[in-house]
């Protein structure tokens, strides 16, 4: 599904990714761990198509070079990024945003756009799966949301848009144990043979709930070690300094 070869990314003359290789197949869960400044969020931004990066190397997504696709085209083709810091958009109702988003994706995929009633039924269903109060959906998008609410909203969007590749950028940061469990349950319930996950995190604790197939250690813009779920457990005990 995703094939990254020798990826290099530079921003403002800072060389951040320095030859990263990664392959993700459908149904797999990959975790990327690594110290601050190792390039984890840059990888998420580059995959989702954020502007401002100078990129070399190759990223293929289902055989298509990502460099040819705009940010929205990537989203429409099933790449989803759960933001580390979800943006507030004042004056925009959460439901309106979600409906616009879903219909943009559906339209691009050649599906019929949903009318308001059908959409509301669907979103209520998805929200209740995550234990999200309906009132929350009529508030302005992320405005005045707690950290946990913002992250739950990201997972709600993921479940609504049904992406093929979901990238979670430090979704666990700032969550209490209960919220962490809800977020993890949300992810686990979306896992399938077709869907893949790339989970970026500092800590093992999210991986206690979402079991990864692979754990990669990112350091200085490269993946320096890859292992199975045990690698994460080991890192939690010994820290990065032993392997970096």
């Amino acid at each position: 599904m995703l094939n990254i070869k020798n990826l290099q990314a530079t921003i403002d003359n800072k060389h951040i990714l320095r030859g990263l290789n990664l392959n993700i197949k459908p149904g797999e869960v990959h975790a990327i761990m690594g110290p601050n400044g190792s390039g984890k969020s840059t990888l998420a931004n580059v995959l989702s198509g954020k502007n401002g990066y100078d990129i070399k190397g190759e990223i293929k997504y289902n055989g298509v070079s990502l460099s040819k696709l705009s940010t929205e085209e990537r989203a429409q083709k099933g790449i989803f990024l759960a933001f580390q810091y979800p943006l507030e958009i004042p004056g925009v109702n959460t439901n309106t945003f979600l409906k616009t988003s879903l219909n943009s994706v559906r339209k691009a995929q050649g599906e019929k756009e949903l009318d308001t009633l059908t959409f509301l039924k669907l979103i209520k269903e998805k929200a209740s799966e995550l234990g999200i109060d309906e009132k929350f959906l009529s508030r302005q998008l992320n405005v005045g949301f707690s950290g946990g609410e913002k992250k739950k909203n990201e997972i709600l969007q993921m479940k609504l848009l049904q992406p093929k590749l979901s990238i979670l950028d430090e979704t666990d940061s700032g969550l209490d144990i209960d919220a962490l469990r809800i977020v993890a349950d949300g992810v686990n319930s979306y896992k399938s043979k077709e869907n893949a996950f790339l989970i970026i995190t500092h800590y093992q604790r999210l991986l206690d709930y979402i079991k990864p197939d692979y754990v990669h250690v990112l350091s200085n813009g490269r993946i320096i070690k890859t292992g199975d779920a045990d690698l994460g457990v080991q890192l939690e005990k010994t820290g990065y300094s032993n392997i970096v």
């Binding site: 989702s48 198509g49 954020k50 502007n51 705009s70 940010t71 929205e72 990537r74 989203a75 429409q76 989803f80 990024l81 933001f83 979800p86 943006l87 958009i89 925009v92 309106t96 945003f97 616009t100 988003s101 879903l102 943009s104 994706v105 691009a108 969007q157 848009l161």
Partner: peptide
């Protein structure tokens, strides 16, 4: 960028914001 990542093109995003 957030709107684009959710599938909205530039004009839809500007309109929404």
């Amino acid at each position: 960028y957030y709107c684009n990542q959710r599938g909205l093109d530039q004009e839809e995003a500007v309109s929404l914001i």
